[in-house]
Design a protein around this nucleic acid. Structure first.
Length: 785
DNA sequence: GAGTTTGAAACT
DNA sequence: CAGTTTCAAACTC
């Protein structure tokens, strides 16, 4: 599988999210309701809403042809990848199940119920039939506007029961041409969604074309507006377009291009924003001004069942991104699509992607892939994991959080009760929202009902059912054990926490991003685990942690110091690895239990820590409202002897000032402290020196490398030889004879030693010059004294 | 590298 | 919640 290299990955612009997980739905329209029903969480499922999402006017559009004012890169991107882009506080869930008519499911993240409230600027020209089988009912059908838009105006809902009901709300719209739109609202409330149809003549014609143009690229445009009154405010310069060109392997379904046009939150953008082309998993960055509408284009070739590449770029924070391959799916997988919506708050973004192939007689859907993009604060490490895995993998990321509660893993094997497909009536399995609260990011993680979830059975990999290929040839399979005791503390989601407890076969292991990173660094990680924390004996874990120990790009992002724990078994917060939610790896610890081999003990330890302090795994250094300058220790330090000017002090170590929350004695870690300033100056000077040394080393290394590069072919080929290559043994001997001759001359003339040395050196210089001058000649140098 | 210091975490 | 102990990192020599 091709993956985006870390180098290219680093070039990913903020605004780009790319994934190939989007696959056109080729299911017949009649089957769509069923499919959407699968992805529809039950009414009992509380809505994982985080209402802190800022109400940023946003426009997301899928259109066939980018407006002239848009910087469209459609067509320039080869197939093989899909790119999505969202702006802050936008959560877009794309679900596409493959049908012959290439229907597309869009799930804008919103918590509100979709209604037919039409903005003033649009006029209802036609109604789109609504098929909501198995879905949350909509208050009204979509409205096709005059400008080829399907307006899905969502009603702002209270954070109460409405949100709960609206969670996962999915609307399926069938156009006259048989095209289906399935829109699920799982995100911000009060945000209408406009499905903008291509501007191809009459509206009906364009709608019809959507269903008919199977052999031609099809374009959809979906526009979401933050409020019902915002449609008229859509301005060209506010549009950000992401165009997704997609080809299906189904002959009847031609390439379909999606153009996501989205309003840009000017406040959250810098003067320059980046737009990337994703070319077969490779991302090339370009830049464009913010004010003009931005079009991000990517193409996806669904015909290839071997590799689906995902590239995602967050909108805002300079987040790092991991692009991993999506394992191909098995056509005959009997599982239907299920969406597992996740919500991100605070500028977080999320895209849930589902896909299936049309070749499967039954609806086959990849497990939900969740991509969370964005966030605030420090650079984030974004990870996208393959979906096709024997264990149902969910990924949750918390931008800005010390812990990236990354993965939900479902157990599909093991000795736990129940089997996939068997109904689960245990109420404990009912979907519940998990709100992750950190000082920087709040995240809601809804767990769809187990009955639904278990329909998302990962498809085996084409190559191996036990491994997943990730960015750097690591293979990862996540454990799926349950830990019921921890669920009450889901707001803290400790590393390794296992979600979705109960007797069901679906467990959700929440692991920190660091863990994922660690596993990514592993050359080979194979793990099979059964669910049931209560039955530890049932846990079958096989983990082969890194064989080579070599770090990858992930390690480069955040180097980790190995711990040296001896007595804590690395299962207490004394251990930095454990405290950071990491498994010990390449540490110097003894009797370490902070690994997969001791998953049970580790889970217990996590629970114990959370019992003592529910915020034990939260970042200690919170982010202030006005940026890093306001970072402060959540608890404050208690230093007594260090003056808070040594790394003993957690504040000083974090390079922040002590605050009123500190209980330190004799604190010198305040703004005006002369001692602190002195230390800072020294530290800065030391840092400068280090940087200079590093730069010098780098330069020297580069020069050496360059020299070798230039000289090696010369030596081997014989052409363009460097001067020193002429210093053969004979030349050296002749040179030495010349030097000796000078020495003898000086001795014969009874010259002083200094004069003799000078004569020798001068002769040596002449020899060198002759050697150098001879280098430019084809003949061998002739050195004569 | 060994020993000491330090303060957070854990414990009572 | 306060005092004590444990622990591992930071620091010193």
């Amino acid at each position: 599988m091709d993956v985006v290299s870390p180098e290219l990955n680093s070039l990913l612009p903020d605004e780009i999210m790319d994934t190939e997980a989007i696959i056109m739905d080729d299911d017949p329209p009649s089957e769509s309701p069923a499919a959407s029903g699968q992805s529809q969480p039950s009414d009992d499922s509380p809505v994982p809403m985080d209402t802190d999402v800022p109400a940023v006017p946003e426009i997301v559009s899928l259109c066939s042809d980018a407006p002239p004012t848009q910087l469209t890169q459609a067509g320039t991107t080869p197939t093989g990848s899909t790119l999505c882009s969202t702006t802050s506080a936008t959560q877009l869930l794309l679900t596409s199940s493959t049908v012959s008519s290439s229907s597309l499911t869009l799930r804008p993240a919103t918590a509100s119920t979709l209604t037919s409230t039409t903005p003033k600027t649009t006029s209802s020209l036609s109604r789109v039939s609504l098929t909501s089988g198995g879905l949350q009912k909509l208050s009204a059908p979509f409205t096709l506007s005059a400008n080829h838009q399907i307006i899905l105006n969502k009603v702002a809902s209270s954070p109460g029961a409405d949100i709960t009901r609206s969670q996962g709300t999915t609307t399926t719209t069938t156009t006259p041409g048989g095209q289906q739109f399935m829109v699920t609202a799982i995100g911000k409330s009060g945000q209408p969604i406009v499905l903008q149809l291509p501007h191809t003549g009459s509206k009906s014609a364009s709608v019809q074309g959507l269903g008919e143009a199977k052999a031609n690229p099809q374009h959809f445009k979906v526009v979401t507006v933050s409020s019902a009154s915002q449609v008229s405010t859509l301005q060209a310069q506010q549009l950000k377009t992401v165009q997704i060109a997609q080809k299906t392997q189904v002959s009847s379904a031609g390439p379909i291009k999606f153009v996501f046009t989205k309003a840009v939150n000017n406040k959250g953008l810098t003067a320059q924003t980046s737009v990337s082309n994703v070319i077969t998993g490779r991302v090339l960055s370009t830049s464009s001004p913010v004010t003009p509408p931005r079009t991000i284009t990517l193409s996806e070739t669904l015909g290839s069942s071997s590799s689906n590449k995902i590239a995602i770029s967050p909108l805002k924070s300079p987040s790092k991104l991991t692009v991993v391959s999506v394992a191909s799916q098995v056509p005959n997988s009997p599982h239907k699509s299920v969406s597992l919506p996740l919500n991100m708050a605070h500028l977080g973004h999320q895209i849930l992607l589902q896909q299936s192939t049309s070749t499967s007689p039954a609806k086959t859907m990849k497990p939900v892939q969740t991509v969370t993009v964005g966030g605030v604060g420090a650079p984030q490490f974004k990870t996208i994991f393959p979906l096709s895995t024997p264990s149902n993998v969910q990924q949750i990321q918390v931008p800005g959080s010390r812990f990236h509660y990354v993965r939900l893993v479902t157990a599909t094997t093991g000795s736990s009760t129940g089997h996939a497909g068997s109904p689960i009536t245990n109420s404990s399995m009912t979907a519940k929202p998990m709100v992750v609260n950190t000082t920087q990011v709040r995240m809601s993680v809804p767990i769809v009902p187990a009955q639904t979830m278990k329909q998302v059975v990962p498809k085996p990999l084409t190559s191996s059912g036990q491994v997943l290929t990730t960015q750097t040839q690591q293979r990862l399979i996540m454990p799926a054990t349950s830990l019921p005791q921890i669920q009450p503390n889901l707001t803290n989601l400790p590393p390794g926490t296992v979600l979705a407890p109960g007797s069901g076969n679906m467990g959700y292991a929440v692991l920190p991003a660091q863990y994922v990173t660690q596993l990514q660094q592993s050359a080979y990680v194979t793990l099979a685990s059964s669910s049931g924390f209560s039955t530890p004996t049932g846990i079958q874990t096989q983990a082969r942690l890194p064989l080579n120990g070599l770090s990858t790009s992930g390690a480069a992002f955040r180097p980790r110091k190995p711990c040296n724990c001896t007595k804590s078994q690395c299962l207490k917060l004394y251990c930095d690895c454990f405290a950071n939610g990491e498994f010990c790896q390449s540490c110097n610890c003894t009797n370490c239990f902070n690994n997969l081999e001791h998953e049970t003990d580790r889970a217990k330890a996590i629970k114990a820590c959370l019992d003592r302090n529910p915020e034990a795994f939260k970042p200690k250094i919170g982010k202030g409202k006005e940026g890093e300058s306001d970072r402060r220790h959540s608890k404050g330090c208690n230093c007594k002897r260090s003056g808070c000017l040594k790394n003993y002090c957690e504040c000083y170590e974090a390079k922040i000032m002590c605050s009123s929350t500190c209980k330190c004695v004799g604190c010198k870690n305040f703004e005006e402290s002369p001692e602190r300033k002195t230390l800072m100056h020294l530290a800065d000077a030391a840092e400068v020196r280090v940087q200079q040394q590093t730069a010098a080393k780098t330069k020297l290394s580069s020069q050496i490398s360059d020299l070798l590069t230039r000289t090696t072919p010369a030596i081997t080929s014989g052409g363009g030889r460097m001067p020193y290559t002429f210093v053969t043994k004979e030349v050296a001997e002749v040179t030495c004879e010349c030097l000796l001759e000078q020495a003898e001359q000086a001795e014969l003339n009874q010259q002083p030693q200094a004069t003799a040395e000078r004569m020798i050196l001068e002769e040596f210089g002449r020899c060198l010059m002759r050697i150098i001058s001879s280098a430019g000649k084809t003949d061998c140098p002739s050195i004569n004294c």
